[in-house]
Amino acid sequence: MDAVRDMLENNKKIKRWSALPNHSPSIAWIVRGEKFFWTPEGNATEQGNQSKNKNKNKKRPEPRYEIGSITKTMTAFRLAQGEQDGLWQPSDTLAKLIPELESSDFARQATLRQLATHTSGLTRLAKNQVLAKRDKTNPYAAYTEKDLIEAVLEEKFRSGSKHEYSNYGYGLLGWALGRISGVPLHEALRRELFDPLGMNATIMPVIEGTQPNTSSSNEATGSGAAKNVSGGNEPASSDTLTVPGFAPGGRPVRHWDFTSAMAGAGAVRSTARDMLTYLEAQLGQHPAAASFESSLLACQNEQASVAPSKGVGIGYAWMRSMRKDGTVTHWHNGATYGSSSFAAFNRDLQSGFVILSNRGVSFAGQIKQMIGLGELSTDRAAHLVAEVLFKNE
């Protein structure tokens, strides 16, 4: 797709953004089955990469990134897949499925569908997740299953709640699906999504207990006691390394740790190549995804309205935007303190893209971007890519 590559190489804002100190972004896109990859150091098609590496014994190290809230689309897939397997129904309430939550006013009325569409009335964070009393650089590391259950037991249900984005809600959803099925979310995703699609570099590290490594260093392979899907420390492989993260302004920050209580909201780490494979499945182009196509479509289908007048809705996690040409673009972004990401696809146009960055965005930085100041964000870079990639001529 020459138009996208040309834009990335010649757009002045993209050039400044990609050249920020310690910045190592990766951008990948797919058009009717053909894959493309771009970094500031160079770019190639999927076929080109294969031919270049054909006679090499050692693969080029591939960076892994924290993908933040794009994780929610994978948690949502687990919900849809469990529906197909008869483990639960979207209209089931938490209290119906988890007896220990029966005394909660919220759990007796909130459904799995409401959690998946951010319409349960839960706020962005639980009331008992007081960041001031925890490690501010690693905000979810000390939030345990006990904390989560205590929060839900105290929660009141708000009838008629509209769409309100909630990390709390998706942490609860991911935990609940694991508790109901007896299979932790990270293990279910490995079995049902990552392994079948060949997303071998994608992991959901989950720490055990409440004692993550408090070292101030930001190791390339992850943080301290984080456990990967196979139960050991995140592998320090020459093929896949989690890149160090940097806050706006270039200050190094640690990777985030998650317990099972909040992993469903943002714990996954992945590579541009694996994420493009994920989008390939969303587009119906991956042969291994045929067996769970119905679950992918359930996540894409509109489950709740967000802004009807603007043609914006939500499936299970995936946001849906109706374009002027009548096609629908699905998207989700994500961020930690030291990373930002964006994934989007248009099934009608059979194309999609992912942007992974090891640079976070501050609240002040978001305000500056709204008025055209400050450094380019991953979200704004995504807008530029989408303008070119989804141009329907």
Rank of each mutant, 00 (worst) to 15 (best):
T259M: 02
R269L: 03
S260Y: 08
G245M: 04
D257P: 15
A272R: 09
P235L: 10
P248Y: 13
A236N: 07
A236P: 09
A261Q: 07
A265C: 12
A272I: 15
A247W: 15
D257M: 11
A261Y: 02
H255S: 13
M262W: 05
E280H: 00
F258I: 05
G264T: 00
P248N: 11
R269Y: 04
A272W: 08
P248D: 04
F258A: 03
A272Y: 05
W256G: 03
A247H: 11
G266D: 02
P244D: 02
M262E: 10
V268S: 01
G245Y: 13
V268L: 13
M275F: 13
A263G: 02
M262G: 01
A236L: 06
A267Q: 09
A263L: 00
S230W: 14
T277P: 01
G250R: 07
M275Q: 15
A236G: 06
P252N: 13
M275T: 10
E280G: 02
W256E: 03
V268F: 08
L276E: 11
R254H: 09
P252T: 09
A267R: 14
P252H: 05
N233K: 15
S230E: 10
A263S: 12
R254N: 03
R269W: 03
L279G: 12
S230Q: 06
S237L: 15
D274E: 08
R269I: 15
S237Y: 04
T271H: 07
S270G: 04
A265R: 11
A265I: 03
P235H: 11
A265N: 13
S270V: 07
R251V: 09
A236Q: 11
R273K: 15
Y278E: 07
V253W: 12
M275P: 14
L279K: 01
A247M: 05
A267K: 02
T242P: 01
T271F: 00
H255C: 11
S238H: 14
S237N: 11
A265P: 04
D257K: 08
T242R: 13
T259I: 07
R251H: 11
A236I: 02
F258V: 04
G266T: 07
A261S: 12
H255G: 04
